[in-house]
Amino acid sequence: MEVVLKNYPRLLEGALLTLEVTLFSVAIGCIIGLFMGLLRLSGAKPLRLLARVYIDFFRGTPLLVQIFIIYYGLPIPQWFRGGQALLTAHFNVPDFISSYMLPVFLSGVIACSLNSGAYIAEIFRAGVQSIEKGQVEAARSLGMTSSQAMRFVVLPQAFKRVVPPLGNEFIAMLKDTSLLSVIGFAELLRQGQLLVGHYYVAFPIYLAVAFIYLIMTFSFSRLVDFTERRLKTGD
């Protein structure tokens, strides 16, 4: 127990990184998801197919494998390394791409946001499809184009409906970022592992790690409930 009490700042540091990587990933995932979700509903078959392939790939393969592919496998573009070399040479910026691999934080965000984007695309698609057909008909009958009907009538209503599933996605992603410990990203679980390796006591440390995850997910689900109730009143 003292191990935890003595080292809890390390765990909190990890928790902060967990939150950061989750926030970035879900935020970028929302942008990708909205875009892909709309492509999925588009009238053009090739666009629908593109979204389909993206969604099926990232939902149908393990996140851990995606993390490996991106961290170990994604080639770093030449211009990126060139830019890095320039920064190091002229502005004394530390060399953050020391090897041929992307830095762990960046790889983590890329992998998690691509993964999250696939799930969020389905959330947005379902949200849009849940809006009554009569809403689009009313908008079109007033002379709006289909994109105007989408922007001013369907999406504002769909956004309200996707708040709860988006909250769930955030919580799921918060937990899934623990997979990033495998590539050495110093998030919460990884910090716990390092402590365990140092002190040779596992139970209290991993219990503390679990507890911190629980605090984060619990408080976030309360926040989602609250927002949901607030949004309902304006309906």
Partner: peptide
């Protein structure tokens, strides 16, 4: 028939 007002 079902009005179809925009609820938001």
């Amino acid at each position: 028939q079902r009005f179809n007002l925009f609820p938001h």
